[in-house]
Amino acid sequence: MRPLTPAKILSICAALAAVLFVEVVVSLQIGAYHMGARDIVVTLYQGALGHWDAMPGEFKSVIFGLRLPRIALGILVGAALSTAGAGFQALLRNPLADPYVLGVSSGAALGTIISLIVTPHAPGAMQGAAFVGAFATVAVVYFLGRRGGQLDSATLLLAGIVAASFLSAVIMFLMTTISGRDLRGMAFWLMGDLQSDPRIDLRWLYFLLIVAIGCIFTTSSDLNLMLTGEQEARHLGVNVNRVKLVVYICASLLTGLAVSVSGAIGYVGLLVPHVMRMLFGTDYRLLIPTSAIGGAIAIVLADTLARTVVAPSELPVGAMTALAGAPVFIYLMRRRMR
């Protein structure tokens, strides 16, 4: 095993960040409203300097009101979901684990819907409820997934699938009680949608995102050891229970964060960590940060496609990730089997 130096981790992350940056620049230029590259650069520059009155109102609307917020939200959601996916995969030692499959996304969605019914306008209520929903689902699935005191991987996945379909049924039930207009918005949001207003300052969400990813990252050498088995890791001096608790809480927080602003977007949490493993190996010290940036790249790409392929209409980004994600996943699976 070649040593993994911080310099190597940083350089790979910097390379991925550069890819993300290029993608953001390209994505900023694509849209129904035509703006030349020069206009975009000038508008961005004026925005950065705070010269709001110097730029045309429509440029300001398009760049700072529509495109940048969407990209910022996409980066947040992508990073959160794929890091949560990588975390769940490590904990459960199961390559199929992801927030969607384990029912965590559905739990977060249910929490958000309940908060929308009970307190429609309280800021942060959606996020809080989504986190509670995600964490409660993880706790129940974890409890159901145990067999004879040990976590059984197959039982756990089954428990997750059962929880997901049960929670979806509850969501369907609640949705029939909601009036027509809210229902349509909700149905869209469930498919995964980056257009809706998060109703909370993005900086709070970014702050939580970084804290949660940072916490998971600090456990990554322990996660490496736990890949060989919990018992073995325990013998090597890893405080397994503490690591599990940290990762469960952080992964639930990340899922709740993502679902509360964008609905349930599937496949990202499953796919991105796998792609990163194939590219950079299974070391979690590298996998956690690359998954975060890779997830951001994937969602920004998916959303850019979602708002261009059927222009002038838009697809929900969740439909786009499933459309692109499922074939890629099957391809990766077949290639691995060969």
Partner: peptide, 24 residues
């Protein structure tokens, strides 16, 4: 090293963050 690295990562992202946070 890992602890240092995670601190560095947080610092790095915090630097990048305001660009997007401005949107908020």
């Amino acid at each position: 090293q890992l602890k240092l690295l995670s601190a560095a990562m947080v610092a790095l992202i915090t630097c990048v963050m305001p660009t997007f946070a401005r949107v908020g």
